[in-house]
Amino acid sequence: MDLARNLFRSTIGRKLIMAATGVVLIGFVAGHLVGNLQVFEDPDRINGYAHFLQSLGPALWLVRLFLLACVCLHVWSATVLSLESIKARGSEPYRVKRWIDASFASRYMRGTGYVVLAFILYHLAHFTVGAAQPATFKANIPHYVMKGDYHILGVTVVQAGTEVLDCRSMVIGGFRNPVVAVFYMVAVGLLSLHLLHGAESLFQTFGWRNRSWERALKAVVTLLCAAYFLGNLAIPGSVLLGMLR
């Protein structure tokens, strides 16, 4: 009772919600990147992987609903907190406006967050629903036949010879359009920026950050965000450069 009331009603509570959902979302995007990087290997890999995910059925829906809930909570908290902040600042702005010490990433959390939200919507329309680029959508292009088995942790989850959707061709086909590819690159750039502040900030929110390892934390987060950015950049980038076809 207390827990629910305090979490939803107080500034710190909402911040904790944002951090907790942030952790889930980070987990998702990190996993998603690892999965997506299989595009650089044999087509069996990514297509098998996509097929496996689709085959999970109800479990997949549970995960999707959970993710959706997290995004909603995250965006809700962010929005409420932002509105409160605007109110708390009062109606009279400073004549000389300065961002004191705030890092670039931290200043634009709201902006990067909402752009990422827009990106997610587009992305779902693009690769999940097929509304954005129907011509290259996986359901509208020839299926793919698995050459070998696809296994995860040694367990075979998709067998050779299975006919699956050609996820790989869809992605590559999609990114052949430079506008789309550049949009993705910008979006993942903003997301990385969002994470640059967010991933550090969540430690503070949970009360795990302090002076003694502040620097180390910052370094690790920066490194991981850079890796995340480069990893994501690689996919549309390689398609554009013709290295992935």
């Binding site: 305090n6 710190i12 509570g13 911040k15 109110k87 931290s106 200043r107 503070q204 009360g207």
Partner: peptide, 30 residues
Amino acid sequence: GGCTNTGACTVSCPKEIPLDVISQLNRDYL
């Protein structure tokens, strides 16, 4: 308003109270 960990406060604080206290605040609250 709610803190978004931008750190402007500690920089302006005449006593240089460290951000750690916010971390502590959040932890105690949690």
